[in-house]
Design a protein around this nucleic acid. Structure first.
Lengths: 235, 235
DNA sequence: ATATATTGTTTGTGATCACAAAAGATAAAA
DNA sequence: TTTTATCTTTTGTGATCACAAACAATATAT
C-alpha cells in the first residue's frame, strides 16, 4: 500500500480548544522541523488525512500554510514535499539566519529589562542541564526559546516570522546530522550575549548571536559530514 | 447590505492555465499591495467569493496563504483583515528591509554577469521614463522588478520570499502616502548600485541599496505625513 | 436610560462529492 | 529488452452542505 517509505508522524494530543486545522498544522510542522519526513517524499492529502484520522480539508489548509512558510514545496505537478537541500542552499540559509537574527537582536536590545534578562538566564541554565544530559532535542528546543525570547523583547518586532521560516527550512537537516553525533562540544555563547545585553553593547550582542548560530551549525557536524547527508537525503 | 465600506477590488483577467485558487490569491495579493483594502476592514470569505464570483473554497485557501505571508492577519475571533499599522512598526519594517535586502544584494554580487547588468540598466531606464511621466504605480512596480532581478542573480538565494513578505506588509501604506504627493524628487541610487556592481564592491552596493530603500520611503512622504496616514488608516 | 437576556442571522470550519488531470500499470510494438 | 500506447487508479481542485460559534438586534428587567 505504501508507495515509498511509510510516513511516520508523531501525533501529539488533540486539544479541544484548538481547531482541527491548527492541530494538523502544528503536527505537520513539528514533523518537518524534526526531520520525520524525508525530503523529496511526495506528500498526499488523503494519505496524511488517513494517518491523522481527519478529513482531507484541514490537511489541505495546513499543507498550503506550510508551503507559504517555505517549509514545504509545491511543484508544478501539484506534488507537495519537503524541499531537497544542497550544500550551497544550506550555507545561504545559515548566512541569512546570521544577518537577520543579529539585526533582530540589536533591535530588541533597547527593550530588554532585568526581568527578561533573568528569564534568559533561566533558559541558559536549562540548556546547560540538557547539554549535560545529552538530550539533543531538548537542547535545540530550548535554544530556539532563548532566541525567540530575545527577539520578541521588541514589541514592534516584525522579523520573527521570517526567522521561524528559516528555522523550519534548516530544521530537517540539522536533525539528519545531529543524529549521528554521540559526542559534542559547545561553547556557551549565551553568556557572552547576556554580558553584551547588560552592557547595552549592540555590536557585542551581534557578534555573540552570530557566533552562537555558527557554532550551532558546526555542532550539527563537520561540513563534510553535513554535505554527505544533505546530498544523499533525497534518495 | 454592505457592513462597512464596500470592498472594491481590481479583477484581472482569468487565465485558464491557472487554478482558480491561484487567480484569487494573485488578485487579493494585488489588492492588498496596492492598498485597495482598508486596514482593519473585516474580510469575509463569502463576501469575497461573491465579489469574485467563485465558490468560498478558493477564497479560503488564498486568505490562509496571504495570512501565512503576513499580508493579512487572522484574529482570535477568526476575523481576517489587513493589519493596522503603527509608526513604530512601519519603522521596523523599513529597517528590516534594509538589513535583509543589503545582505541579499551582497550575496548576489558574485553571480552578476554582464547580461544581468544590461538587464538592470534597461530597468533603470524604464524607471527614469516612468518618473518623467509621473506614473507612480509604474515606478514602484519597476523598482520592485529591479530589486528582484538583483537578488535572484544568486541561484541559491533563500531570502526573496522573506523580502516579498516585507514588501507586502509595507505596500498598502506606501500607497496611502504617495496618493497625496503631486510632486516628488528622487535621486537615482540605482546608478550608484550599478557602479558598485561593476567594481564588484560589496560594501558600496550595500550602501547604495540601503540609500535606495530609505529614499523610497522618504519618497512616500515626510515622516509627519506618513504617521498621520498610518494612525488614521484604521478609522 | 442602562444593563442583561434572548432571538435571529452571519460566518468559519470541516465533511462529502464530482470531476479532470496526473501517475502508475498493463499490453502491444519495435 | 526498450519504447510506445492504452487503460486503470490515484490525486488535487473546487462546489455544496451541515453545524456550532460569533455577531447583531431586539426585547426584557433593573
Amino acid at each position: 500500500m505504501d508507495k515509498k517509505s511509510p510516513i511516520k508522524i508523531t501525533l501529539t494530543e488533540r486539544n479541544d480548544a484548538v481547531t482541527i486545522t491548527q492541530w494538523v498544522y502544528q503536527t505537520l510542522r513539528d514533523a518537518v522541523m524534526y526531520g520525520e519526513i524525508l525530503p523529496g517524499r511526495a506528500l498526499t492529502i488523503r494519505e496524511l488525512a488517513g494517518i491523522m484520522d481527519v478529513s482531507p480539508m484541514p490537511v489541505r489548509e495546513a499543507l498550503r500554510q506550510l508551503a507559504a512558510e517555505n517549509a514545504l514545496e509545491i511543484q508544478g505537478n501539484r506534488r507537495v514535499m519537503v524541499p531537497n537541500m544542497t550544500a550551497m542552499k544550506f550555507n545561504e540559509l545559515c548566512e541569512a539566519r546570521i544577518a537577520i537574527e543579529s539585526h533582530a537582536a540589536a533591535r530588541a536590545l533597547p527593550y530588554i529589562d532585568s526581568d527578561l534578562l533573568d528569564q534568559l538566564r533561566t533558559l541558559d541554565n536549562l540548556i546547560d542541564a540538557a547539554q549535560e544530559a545529552g538530550n539533543l532535542e531538548q537542547i535545540s528546543l530550548l535554544n530556539q526559546n532563548f532566541h525567540r525570547a530575545l527577539y520578541t523583547a521588541n514589541p514592534h518586532q516584525v522579523t520573527l516570522p521570517l526567522i521561524e521560516s528559516l528555522w523550519l527550512q534548516l530544521g530537517p537537516f540539522m536533525r539528519l546530522a545531529t543524529n549521528e553525533l554521540d559526542e559534542h562540544y559547545l561553547v556557551d555563547r549565551h553568556n557572552e550575549a547576556m554580558a553584551a545585553i547588560e552592557k547595552k553593547d549592540a555590536y557585542a550582542l551581534q557578534v555573540a548571536i552570530s557566533a552562537d548560530i555558527r557554532e550551532g551549525i558546526a555542532f550539527a557536524g563537520t561540513p563534510e559530514m553535513l554535505h554527505a547527508f544533505i546530498e544523499n537525503a533525497g534518495h
